[in-house]
Amino acid sequence: MSLMLITGVGFWDPLAFLAGFLILLLISYIIRSMGEESYGKGIQLEAFFSGDIPPGKGIHVGNLYWGFSDALRGYYKKVVALHTGIVNDYVAWFVALMAIILILITLI
C-alpha cells in the first residue's frame, strides 16, 4: 500500500516532503552555526529608523499590512459599511439570497 494521496491531477506524498524539509532544516542549521557568534547582544531590541527618532507610540506590529488595507481602502469602506450589525439587515440579506436563488432556479 502506497502512502501517496492521488489528487485529481497529481499526487501528494507528505513523508517525502517531510524528509526534504528536514534535510533543508539541517542545511540551514549548518549555515547558521557558521555565523558570527558575538552578534546580537543588546542590539536586536531597537528598531533602526535611519537615524530619525523612532516613533514610540502609534505604530505597532498590529499595523502590519496597513499597505494592503490602504490600497484596498475603497473596497474596505464599502464592505465594512455592509456589515452594519443591525438585525433587520441580516434578515434582508437572507430574503435577498432566497429571492435570488428562487429566481435563478425557477426561471433558468
Binding site: W93, M98, I101, L102
Partner: peptide
C-alpha cells in the same frame, strides 16, 4: 414541478444561512 423548485430554493437558503456562507454570514 414548480413547487419542488421553490422547495429547493427555501431549503438551500435556510441551510446556507445556518452554515454561514456569504451573504448570510454576518451573524
Amino acid at each position: 414541478s414548480f413547487v419542488d423548485k421553490v422547495v429547493v430554493a427555501l431549503l438551500l437558503s435556510a441551510f446556507l444561512l445556518k452554515a454561514g456562507s456569504v451573504p448570510v454570514h454576518m451573524w
